[in-house]
Design a protein around this nucleic acid. Structure first.
Lengths: 228, 228
DNA sequence: GCCATTACGCTACGAGCCGTAGCGAAAGCG
DNA sequence: CGCTTTCGCTACGGCTCGTAGCGTAATGGC
């Protein structure tokens, strides 16, 4: 069977359990040691494998950490909460929860920094982490357009550019808040951010901007869409 | 006289020229080698000083790179272009120009990553890099409020939270665009981003969002303030 | 069951960088 | 001229990296 599904070449197959153990050990090491003090020898010991096994599967520290961190983003979902605002808040809160974990904080920025000088690494990050997030933006936007909350776009290229822009704004804001400003992207912050994103600077400020007093938008439409 | 101005304790004073040479050498090494392959021995050789001199002035690689990169942000200015939109575009373009330089790309994210596990380093980054940027947001917002483009805010604490939010959105978006998406934050992107920030998702999309056809805001006010 | 093939654990190794210690010389101050 | 601090230089132990080599384990083909 294996000969058909994945052309299993003869020989001893790689241990899938070892893969999982290594990635879990990498995350544990990231939590305890952080990026700079993480060594492959330490990861190997934690995972119960030999150091040479690590080098047979990953080119180095960068690639290993990318794969270890990428698994954290598997849990990202796009819940249908009934309105664009509520959908944004939901997915942003999930994203913020992942970035609040120490293994993501210390690992993600480090590999992004490394990727500025390594095109292959940048591509690996894009495929296993970034694109998965961007897909949520695209689908959420389509959903909002189907609801009539956002106008449709005829030009496909323009639609892609817009999705890229929105993605950079959303992901960038959460990352900057969490890692640079080093303050939590909690529910109140997400509410205020969502209002700013939907209404813009002038209009959002005019509605009080507080979230507590401004859950409903100025056009009378329920901004959170709990009951329609 | 120095005994009064800066209590210059007796002994040979530190060479200011060495400081400048070391920081310049650090930036040069960042360009050629990137963060991970940058060694203090290499920086010392480039600067024409001994390695021990580096350790007498900086605790390690992290602190050195923070200071070297911080100088890049000295050139940030807040030009008065006549309108909030034009001011935002101007300062964002300056920020993008700095982030386009390789010494900023490879150095900035790396020290931010390190700062997730080092509170002292995080404070150093905040003081010498982040706060300088944030001040531009605060002043630009005050200017827009004086112009009547944005409503004033009575609560000082709420005003500070709003400034923080705007700052995270602006800086985060540019950083994410430049370093994660790895695409240039050029004039067209900045135009579209500014429109999104000012008008919000729904309204900005409704105006076409393109920039080329949307240089003027929907309220008829020239969004770029070039010739009126 | 036997063999070719691949993965694995283990050890050892040179190379490079880190951060520090110690020394003599240089450059300021009074 | 003494005192103090900085500087250049050398040397060092300790650590990590990435690889090589070897014997063993596990699988598929025959």
């Amino acid at each position: 069977m294996q000969s058909r599904t994945s052309h299993a070449r003869a020989g001893r197959p790689r241990s899938a359990a070892a893969d999982a153990a290594i990635l879990a050990a990498t995350r544990a090491a990231l939590v305890e040691l952080g990026w700079s003090k993480l060594t492959l020898q330490d990861v190997a010991t934690r995972a119960g494998v030999a150091k040479t096994t690590l080098y047979r599967r990953w080119a180095g520290k960068n690639e290993l950490v990318v794969d270890a961190v990428a698994e954290l983003f598997d849990e990202l979902r796009l819940p249908d909460r009934g309105s664009l605002a509520a959908d944004i808040e939901g997915v942003v809160l999930q994203f913020a929860a992942i970035l609040a974990r120490p293994e993501a904080r210390s690992g993600l920025m480090a590999v992004v920094a490394e990727s500025t000088r390594d095109a292959a690494l940048r591509e690996r990050i894009r495929m296993s982490i970034v694109d998965r997030q961007k897909r949520l933006v695209v689908r959420g936007r389509e959903r909002a357009q189907a609801r009539g909350e956002l106008p449709g776009e005829d030009d496909a290229a323009a639609a892609a550019r817009t999705a890229d822009l929105i993605f950079d704004v959303v992901a960038g804001a959460v990352v900057h808040r969490t890692l640079v400003s080093a303050e939590p992207a909690d529910e109140e912050w997400v509410r205020r951010f969502t209002q700013l994103l939907l209404l813009g600077l002038g209009e959002a400020a005019r509605t009080g901007f507080a979230g507590a007093a401004g859950e409903r938008g100025p056009d009378g439409k329920d901004a959170r869409g709990r009951d329609g």
